[in-house]
């Protein structure tokens, strides 16, 4: 019986946004073992980048002492990505759809909107010790 392949990668980012370019390298290495199309690669990269930027800017508030942890699990035609910050959490119900006249002028909510649109499933668990954004992509 063929053994199921699984890749699990964990990276910790400080609030230095330059490190985001590492994500591209990680996804490329996963793509070698779990082939998926160019569009899907782009979707995963955009959604993950948005989640990490959100975590740095809004979660950790650019505090260099706080870290953003990214966990990537590739298994069974699914890539699961968890992005966790060390901020004080927020109320996800306050984030509204930006595609309405009353919300388009608001500053926040674009990142989560993009993540939801690009991933096949998104969940947000938030509390006083941080926020975890979990994204799933079918490949």
């Amino acid at each position: 019986m063929k053994k199921k392949e699984k890749i699990e990668i964990i990276r910790e980012f400080t609030s230095d946004r330059k490190l985001i370019s590492e994500l591209e390298e990680i996804l490329t290495s996963i793509q070698l073992k779990f082939p998926f199309g160019k569009d899907k690669f782009h979707n995963i990269l955009v959604a993950t980048t948005e989640a990490v930027i959100n975590a740095i800017q809004h979660g950790n508030k650019n505090d260099p002492q706080k870290k953003v942890t990214v966990k990537i699990i590739a298994e069974n035609k699914t890539i699961q990505i968890l992005v966790e910050d060390e901020g004080e959490g927020f109320d996800p119900s306050t984030l509204q759809d930006p595609r309405t006249p009353e919300n388009i002028l608001k500053e926040r909510g674009r990142g989560i909107f993009i993540i939801k649109e690009l991933s096949d499933s998104t969940s947000i668990v938030t509390g006083k010790s941080g926020t975890v954004v979990k994204m799933e992509f079918k490949i």
Binding site: I20, S21, H42, V46, T49, I53, R99, R110, I114, E117
Partner: peptide, 24 residues
């Protein structure tokens, strides 16, 4: 009808952002 478009464009060489365009 309603139309919505958001387009993100990285500017400059040091940008780490990805380019995308969403339209509905």
């Amino acid at each position: 009808a309603r139309i919505y478009n958001i387009k993100q464009v990285p500017l400059g060489k040091s940008s780490f952002h990805e380019e995308y365009s969403y339209y509905s």
